[in-house]
Write a protein that binds this DNA or RNA. Structure first.
Lengths: 232, 232
DNA sequence: GCTCTCTTCGTATCATCGATACGATATTGG
DNA sequence: CCAATATCGTATCGATGATACGAAGAGAGC
């Protein structure tokens, strides 16, 4: 059991120091003081080792950040999440490349966890009526843009000498997915306002996304929403 | 001369068919009917071959598009450039990964040319006073976000089943770098915000004003609203 | 304590890959 | 026709991912 951790830490160490962003199984085994067959018995193949290594680096980094999460305002958390994601990429470029670049066939667990954390923050915003797109779409937008910015910062430092574009892109995406300023209205008020906004603007849609029958039913349902009771 | 082109085309062919996204110099030489030393004499090393191959694929793709460029409205060109970039990634995923993922040490000429084309369009917009950020910043924002979206589409098809996020991120970035143009966007934004607000809060309604079937249909309709009513 | 079985270990080895040395062959200039 | 130069082709190197296979060790049952 301990040898597994020793191998992972040796791999993380070598990976962090590797100029090419790659490590050899021989090098890892030598550094960890084990032979190749034990590595392959514990991790299956090189991809398994790299995935475990990435997860380890990610967990270590996240451990320091986990305490500071879940502030009062989910928008702050959303911004902090983006900046934390970017900072991780700059702090551990090789691990980050393995995590998000198309090197590995299947995404490591760390990438999935990053997506989970992001989606959780977005759902908190959605519950407050502050998302203007479905949470899944917002998650995809934020994640893909963030990885693109982070990879650019890492792999083209001459073109991206500072993290200015990161903040600009971050705010551009957040502006696109968030409702302006509606933090103070309660969820029920926001819902009622949203329903009436839609009711007022449905007729003007061209091309019409609904049949007349659908439109009629939708209007009837929307009228029921403001009266619907307190969820929170 | 001709053997060089033959090698490049063989490499492009093998690269397009490669499930791993990689090719071996031996395979390329066999397919082109030459020996390894000639490859190394013509291209220096494998990276040189791959860079030349990426440039070849990019030129071929761009050749078909070059005629349709430089429309009257640079904003149309900006949108077309984003969509063309994304379409190239989907059409030639392996070449695209080599072009923008951190595999190659130095960016191939094709990547630089893509940046040049983008910056040229942005400078036309800037000349018309329609850019709200410096053209270099705008170029970095657009390029990094676009590569992030494209890489996500390529490498995580399960998470990104369609190009919807591409358009959303595109418009988010463009909105952030451009001065306001359309007048009807505000109404559409309000409508979209209202729809997603409702969508996010429907589940919490107690007592439930809708049957599960109604709820499902309503959600489906609400998801259609943000995309509806695009006039431009 | 002894043996039997099953797991772990360690050597040696395979196959593939990028890259090159070096003699053989062809081509070109005089 | 010859010599100088460039190209070719075999054979090979060094590194790497992955594994076969016998040796050594650890329990389980008697």
């Amino acid at each position: 059991m301990d040898t597994k951790q020793a191998i992972i830490e040796a791999a993380a160490e070598l990976l962090a120091r590797s100029p090419s962003g790659d490590v050899s199984t021989r090098g890892v085994c030598d550094a960890a003081g084990v032979q190749q067959p034990v590595l392959y018995r514990l991790f299956g193949d090189k991809e398994g080792l790299l995935a475990a290594t990435v997860d380890h680096v990610w967990d270590q980094y996240l451990g320091a950040k986990r305490v500071a999460e879940k502030s009062a305002d989910p928008l702050e958390d959303l911004r902090a999440g983006w900046d934390s994601h970017t900072a991780f990429a700059l702090a551990h470029p090789n691990a980050y490349k393995l995590m998000f670049a198309p090197t590995l066939r299947s995404a490591p667990e760390a990438a999935r966890e990053a997506m989970r954390i992001l989606r959780e923050v977005l759902e908190r915003l959605a519950a407050q009526g502050r998302l203007r797109v479905p949470a899944d779409d917002a998650a995809r937008m934020v994640m893909s843009a963030n990885t693109g910015v982070a990879l650019s910062l890492i792999t083209r430092p001459a073109l991206y000498p500072d993290a200015g574009p990161s903040t600009l892109v971050r705010d551009a995406i957040h502006h696109a997915i968030l409702v302006e300023g509606g933090a103070d209205t309660s969820a029920r008020d926001a819902r009622a306002a949203a329903a009436s906004t839609l009711l007022a603007s449905l007729d003007g849609l061209t091309p019409a996304p609904f049949t007349p029958a659908e439109s009629g039913l939708l209007e009837e349902w929307l009228e029921r929403i403001p009266a619907a009771g307190r969820s929170d």
